[in-house]
Computed example of a mutant assay.
Amino acid sequence: MGVRGIGWHRLRHAIEAEVLLGIPRSIIVVHLGSIDLVNYSVLQIRNIMDREFRYLRAAFPTCLLIWIDILPRRTWPGAANVKAVDNKRRRINRLGRKLVMAAAHGDVLSCDIQQEDGLFRPDGIHLNDVGLEFYLDSLRDTIIKHC
């Protein structure tokens, strides 16, 4: 299941039905929060992430949880200072890695994708076909490593 454009505040709502129905999950991939970087402080995001990772661990205790770093962007819609948002992105990525690796059944995927690599669409936000293939290959390799 994937939800496009989801932020931290909508994560729980997106998966609560599955939790209530007892639908088992063996892997949860967490790649979200880029939208939150413009709208919330690092402290606010940190508090939300901490709460939501505790929830995921309680709801899916044996599930493999994979954190994927938020990718860099050339532009951050709504941001006055792109460099400040990118610094916040790096801090949140470090926090996400730490939270996922703090408990059993966690892994981290840090895709080596930079704006200069030519892997983004002209909007500077979304990956182009080659970038998406690179991204998905990296995710596949991470999942296979645990099977």
Rank of each mutant, 00 (worst) to 15 (best):
G106H: 08
V42P: 04
A79D: 01
R73K: 09
A58Q: 14
L43S: 14
V85S: 02
Q114A: 06
R90V: 02
L71Q: 01
A17G: 08
L64C: 08
L71N: 00
I48H: 07
L95E: 05
I48M: 14
R54H: 09
R51K: 07
D50W: 05
V130W: 03
V38A: 00
S138V: 07
V19C: 04
D129W: 11
V130Y: 08
I35A: 07
G33L: 01
S41C: 06
R74D: 14
R25I: 02
Q115F: 00
S26V: 11
R97D: 05
N93M: 11
A80E: 02
V29W: 01
G131T: 09
L99W: 02
H146L: 00
I66F: 00
L132M: 15
A80P: 02
R140P: 03
G7T: 15
N93H: 05
I92F: 03
L71R: 10
T142I: 04
K88C: 12
G131W: 06
N47I: 10
D123P: 04
I92A: 09
H31L: 15
D86V: 06
I23H: 12
H13C: 07
G131V: 01
N39Q: 15
G5D: 09
G96K: 05
I45K: 08
P61T: 12
T75D: 11
S110F: 03
L71T: 13
D141N: 10
G131F: 08
L136W: 06
D36N: 04
N39I: 04
H105R: 12
F60Q: 12
F120I: 04
E133K: 13
L20Y: 00
E116A: 13
A17R: 15
L95A: 05
H126G: 04
I45P: 07
A80K: 12
E18G: 15
P24E: 03
F53C: 08
A80W: 08
G96F: 00
G22V: 04
F53G: 07
R54W: 09
S26N: 11
I113S: 09
V30Y: 02
F134V: 14
G124V: 08
R57K: 08
A80Y: 00
L99D: 11
L119S: 05
L43I: 06
D112I: 11
L32K: 10
I35Q: 10
V29M: 03
V82K: 02
E133M: 14
N81Y: 08
G78Y: 04
G96D: 00
A102T: 14
F120A: 06
M101V: 15
V130Q: 15
K88R: 12
D36L: 03
I70N: 07
I144Q: 15
D112V: 11
L136D: 03
G106Y: 07
R46E: 13
E52S: 09
R46L: 11
F53I: 13
L43E: 14
V19R: 11
V82S: 11
T62E: 15
H126P: 10
G118V: 00
I45H: 01
R121K: 13
I27L: 01
L21F: 05
